[in-house]
Amino acid sequence: MVPTMSGENTVREIGHDEFDPKGTLVLILVYFGVLSVMWVFMYFVEFLGNDLTVLV
């Protein structure tokens, strides 16, 4: 039987605001954290700490 958007086989129907993909949110927050830390490390430690830097 082909499942349909709504019909007799629907177990639960939820509205727009009730759909909360918490796992995705956590995943994205973790990714955001990793990205921020990596950016700070790359710029301030690896790049700025890599003397001799071209100045003026």
Partner: peptide, 24 residues
């Protein structure tokens, strides 16, 4: 290229490459 540092530039015939660094 000063190896392992950010001092790194192209040297083009006819152009003078100018770069200033601070050495410690």
């Amino acid at each position: 290229e000063v190896v392992g540092t950010n001092a790194n530039a192209m040297v083009v015939p006819g152009e003078i490459t100018e770069l200033t660094v601070e050495v410690n």
